[in-house]
């Protein structure tokens, strides 16, 4: 029972990361119809920027986190402006290729600047708490709480602010939104900023627990894609539920199915589901 609860706890923690990262991706995919293959790499860069601000510049964890998030928002805006906006009117396949280009660029950028070997951000809260027989480090708890705060904040932003409402309007009907005079380019830019910033939050929360490496974005990015495709493109609840679900399945399944092949099952399931329903479980259309 205690082992089970421990696994549930870990699953929720991983799920928190998945949920945040998938959230950022679903926003971009829903609004711009662009599959940002580099989204996992934005997450990776967020982690390294935390390292840069918190450790290299010595700003400390929280100031570093804030700086990393701001910096990533800017990175997201630059990416939208330079890479994706010029491809708006071109065949979709060109946007995928540009996304692969950004992914290669970001990964080797991290490799060149910080090296291929892993880096560690010192854990600011290494204390352990024992709760109902489950040991949890404060930092792990922080990941979970941070994710909840972020999700609630984003929900508030989308529902209660004008900026959030315009994003939703564009997501639902791009042409219609254009007709009502919404500046779609500005919305795109803002969405990319939010998407990259949330990825940075996820990376900042979890990097004191795991090593940073340039390759860490690739698999996470793919998992985020799986969540988004299954949860429905542009669907925020889909991304959140899907994220936590995948975290739990992995944590609980890790003991029963081979750890080596764990990702094979997740990816294989996606292939089969899309073979049966090519537009995703809750998919409305196509990209």
């Amino acid at each position: 029972m205690e082992l089970f609860l421990q696994q549930v706890f870990n699953g929720i923690m991983f799920g928190s990361t998945y949920a945040i990262v998938a959230l950022g991706l679903t926003l971009v995919m829903g609004i711009l119809n662009i599959p940002n293959f580099a989204h996992g790499h934005l997450y990776m860069l967020g982690g390294y920027l935390l390292f840069f601000f918190a450790i290299t510049l010595g700003l400390g964890y929280w100031a570093g986190l804030v700086m990393a998030v701001i910096a990533m928002a800017v990175v997201g805006m630059i990416m939208e402006r330079i890479v994706y906006r010029p491809l708006n009117e071109q065949p979709h396949i060109n946007a995928f290729i540009a996304a692969v280009g950004s992914l290669l660029f970001l990964e080797s950028f991290a490799m060149v600047v910080w090296g291929a070997q892993g880096l560690r951000v010192e854990n600011p809260y290494p204390q352990m708490i024992d709760f109902m027989g489950v040991t949890m480090s404060v930092q792990r708890l922080l990941v979970i709480i941070g994710a909840i705060v972020l999700i609630l904040g984003l929900h508030f932003f989308m529902k209660k602010t004008i900026a959030g409402a315009t994003i939703e309007a564009v997501a639902q009907n791009r042409e219609g939104a254009m007709l009502t005079g919404i500046n779609v380019n500005r919305v795109s830019s803002m969405t990319f900023a939010i998407s990259a910033a949330t990825a940075a939050v996820a990376a900042s929360l979890i990097s004191p627990i795991f090593m940073l490496s340039p390759a860490m974005g690739a698999i996470l990015g793919m998992k985020a894609f799986i969540i988004v495709i299954l949860g429905g493109m542009g669907s925020i609840p889909g991304a959140i539920v899907g994220g936590y679900l995948l975290g739990l399945i992995e944590a609980l399944g890790g003991g029963y199915i081979s750890a080596d092949y764990k990702d094979v099952f997740a990816f294989g399931a996606l292939i089969l589901i899309l073979a049966i329903k090519p537009t995703g479980l809750f998919g409305k259309g196509e990209v």
Binding site: F37, F96, G268, L274, P278, E286, V287
Partner: peptide, 11 residues
Amino acid sequence: KGAYFAIVTLC
């Protein structure tokens, strides 16, 4: 189609 095919083949 499109992005879905790219991601599925990547998987």
